[in-house]
């Protein structure tokens, strides 16, 4: 059994809309091990990014309940000073959009150097520069001495993402959170960046939380996968188990809605309806029920819980056992506009 690095228990992250709080992450429990890639898959509004931001303590105005244990600390309970000490040092984050995640008025070198400075004030300027050049080399940026003094707008998207990765790994974090790290990049660059993240994980023995909507990326990268829908984890399993034997209706629908690389199908599967927005999420019963109306109501649990179907393979609600795809849903146009 591998060593547990992060343990998230009953995490609930709520945002305030007008006068009420609405949970974007609702009762999430999971763990990340050392030298493991845990992929969190979901569509927009599933709460996957809110989950990542909670772990990094980056939510300013959210209400966070539950626990996130990492290195004997409980992140939601930390003081700002202690949190700043851990961020960028013990845990770090890679962002989605390399075009906006760098400060346009600071040189590449200064931006990487800042992380080093923040966590080791004794490092001399020269030493920091040396280390930055090392890092630029490590993430595969050519001519690092020259790039050091460049500004972000002078670099391509792929190069900027490498800079963001260099910032993230500067202090050899034990936990790396990658939030859609390749979504904004070209395919050939995507492959390179994924390889890079994988290599770095091996080198640093780090745990990686990979947030993505791309099932191909999951299949390539993940050791374990958590599927999120409407703020909850609906299925969590080892990657092979999940792709070979997906259980939850949402996981199965999602897998069926991507074009298959091996055979060309005429129609893709379409999930009926739309993801309800935060304010209108059903807070009781199976949250996916409204999108599979042909399944009998009795198939759902009243308070859906996670069930361990096989060792390490958990699925929420009992509806998966009675789920089937409808013959040919001719109604795919009607996505119910009121």
């Amino acid at each position: 059994m591998s060593e547990e690095l992060v343990k998230i228990q009953n995490l609930k992250t709520s945002f305030r809309i007008k006068d009420d709080y609405y949970a974007a992450v609702d009762d999430v429990t999971l763990s990340v091990n050392k030298n493991e890639v845990l992929a969190i898959v979901g569509e927009s509004g599933s709460g996957k990014s809110a989950l990542a931001f909670s772990v990094m303590g980056l939510h300013n105005r959210a209400k966070i309940e539950g626990d996130i244990y990492f290195k004997d600390q409980n992140i939601p309970k930390l003081s700002p000073a202690k949190l700043n000490q851990m961020r960028g040092d013990d845990m770090a984050m890679i962002f989605q959009d390399p075009l906006t995640a760098l400060n346009p008025l600071m040189t590449i070198g200064d931006q990487i150097s800042e992380t080093l400075f923040l966590h080791n004030k004794n490092l001399s300027k020269e030493k920091r520069r040396e280390r930055v050049i090392d890092l630029l080399n490590q993430v595969g940026i050519p001519r690092p001495e020259y790039i050091y003094d460049q500004y972000p707008h002078e670099l391509s998207g792929g190069m900027r993402q490498r800079v963001i990765i260099a910032i993230a790994i500067a202090n050899k974090p034990e936990l790396l959170i990658a939030d859609e790290p390749t979504t904004a990049l070209d395919v050939t660059i995507q492959a390179q960046i994924l390889d890079l993240i994988r290599e770095l994980k091996e080198d640093m023995d780090a745990g990686v939380i990979l947030i993505t909507h791309d099932l191909g990326v999951v299949a390539e990268m993940a050791d374990r996968v958590a599927v999120m829908y409407a703020g909850q984890i609906v299925e969590i399993a080892d990657v092979h188990s999940l792709f070979e034997n997906p259980l939850h209706p949402y996981t199965r629908s999602l897998l069926n809605s991507v074009p298959n690389a091996d055979e060309v199908q005429d129609k893709l599967h379409v999930i009926q309806g739309i993801v309800p927005s935060l304010q209108y999420l059903p807070r009781k019963g199976c949250r996916f029920a409204s999108r599979i109306p042909w399944i009998d109501e009795s198939a759902h649990e009243e308070n859906p819980e996670m069930h361990e179907v096989r060792p390490g393979h958990f699925v929420r609600c009992t509806c998966h056992s009675q789920f089937y795809f409808p013959e040919e849903n001719k109604e795919e146009h009607s996505d119910g506009i009121s």
């Binding site: 990094m56 980056l58 700002p80 000073a81 700043n84 000490q85 851990m86 961020r87 960028g88 040092d89 770090a92 984050m93 962002f95 959009d97 906006t100 995640a101 760098l102 400060n103 346009p104 800042e114 992380t115 923040l118 966590h119 963001i164 910032i167 993230a168």
Partner: peptide
Amino acid sequence: KDFIITARAKGAP
């Protein structure tokens, strides 16, 4: 802006 989140994620006070 996104780069402000980057700065916070670095651990900047």
